[in-house]
Design a protein around this nucleic acid. Structure first.
Length: 376
DNA sequence: CGCACCGGGTTCTGCCATCTGC
DNA sequence: GCAGATGGCAGAACCCGGTGCG
């Protein structure tokens, strides 16, 4: 969410530009007219006409300079070509400016390169508009690599794992960086996962990476070191048998493999502490994590206040452990629902706590029914 | 018809460090 | 020594509805 609003903020820049003048033919082509008596003529000076061009396009030059200063010193760049290309794909002027501001190297790509890369992305996406959306969200994912051959091989490789079109689409939509990884890096992760499966006595290790990746599309943009550490943490703390651990990892557990390892450790520790405090057994902790691993996503403070809020509302820890999905909902949401339920005299001991785990629509309908019967 | 079970959808970039090739 | 290419990291949940069963 924060990231999204950050992007919005970027898009809102306007400054004082006029339209792109139609007379700016190949003004950008060359501008290194430096005198011979300057200390470092072409090395350290920025390309003035490039700067002017970027300004006219609404690019945040200060941001670009901060991110990739070298690009501003280049004699030959292709900002006009890029702009035209992006425009032909339906990108607005603001989006184009934002892309260059955030990833200046984009202007060093040739039209041929861009065409090729776009076509490769179109193997996965149905429309140009989808790609434009991703580019404006994450320019770096598209522009960081100049190796289209590698991209092509990546797509083939990922498809060869058994990931279908829908999986690939989800992968490229939510973790576009995956496709800019070197094929070798992706292959390393896949091989690592196959090894994990084999070590745990899995029958067909080839299907394991697909299972994990389709449940967690962020895996391939994480280091094997991180995933390895996380598996170690889970193995050591949950003390499952090999086959149980394997089932967990390719099932619900896959969701949490991309967590920062420190974060996983920290959250595991604080969860354990909190459950101890509430008088739970170690078996309860294990059961909770195995049945509802995303509990480890919730930070210590948030988790603590969420549990407190449920307990204060008259729900027991035993009920929470039975139906951990109630923890899915925000504390605000839960608080509000508990109040409404209290108002209609809902009895959790008698009726259970599943009401809390339902959509807004269903919950409201339920409340309405309960208050109607209250009026009778 | 109401409920519980269950899976699915959304989401994740922007920065820095380190190599490599010229 | 430069810029380019690539790897890796921190950050941190919430919500909806289909479906099958009693």
């Amino acid at each position: 969410m924060a990231a999204v609003s950050g992007v919005r903020a970027l898009l809102r820049r306007s400054i004082n530009q006029v339209h792109l003048t139609s007379t700016c033919l190949p003004k950008w082509i060359c501008s290194s007219v430096t005198k011979g008596n300057e200390p470092k003529p072409t090395v350290n000076s920025e390309n003035e006409s490039l700067l002017e061009n970027l300004n006219l396009m609404g690019v945040d030059v200060e941001m670009a300079r901060q991110r990739q200063p070298g690009v501003l010193r280049k004699a030959f760049t292709n900002e006009q070509g890029l702009a035209q290309f992006m425009k032909s794909k339906g990108a607005s002027r603001q989006v184009i400016a934002s892309i260059i501001s955030r990833y200046p190297r984009a202007i060093t790509r040739s039209i041929e390169h861009l065409d090729q890369r776009w076509e490769l992305w179109r193997n996965v996406f149905q429309t140009d508009a989808e790609i434009v959306t991703i580019l404006s969200r994450s320019p770096e994912s598209f522009f960081r690599s100049s190796d289209n051959g590698n991209l092509k091989k990546n797509i083939a490789f990922l498809a060869s794992l058994g990931l279908n079109t829908k999986d690939l689409h989800r992968l490229l939509t939510t973790a576009p960086r995956t496709f800019s990884n070197s094929l070798e890096l992706n292959r390393q992760m896949v091989e690592f996962l196959e090894d994990v499966c084999a070590e745990l006595g899995g029958k067909n290790p080839e299907q394991f990476p697909k299972a994990v990746i389709s449940r967690n599309v962020y895996i391939l943009i994480r280091s094997t070191k991180r995933v390895k550490t996380n598996i170690e943490i889970l193995r050591a703390s949950l003390k499952l048998s090999d086959s149980e651990l394997l089932a967990f990892l390719q099932g619900p557990g896959a969701e949490i493999l991309d967590l920062s390892s420190e974060y996983m450790k920290k959250n595991f520790g604080s969860l354990q502490q909190k459950l101890d405090l509430l008088g739970c057994q170690r078996a309860d902790l294990k059961k909770l994590i195995v049945s509802y691993p995303v509990v480890l996503f919730i930070g210590p403070n948030r988790l603590s206040s969420k549990l407190d809020c449920l307990l204060k509302g008259g729900i027991t820890m035993k009920q929470i452990l039975e139906k951990p999905k109630v923890l899915d909902y925000s504390t605000e949401n839960i608080t509000g629902r508990l109040e409404e339920l209290k108002r209609v005299g809902y009895d959790f001991q008698k009726n259970g706590i599943s009401v809390l785990d339902s959509s807004r629509k269903r919950f409201d309908a339920k409340i309405e029914k309960l208050s109607a019967s209250l009026d009778d």
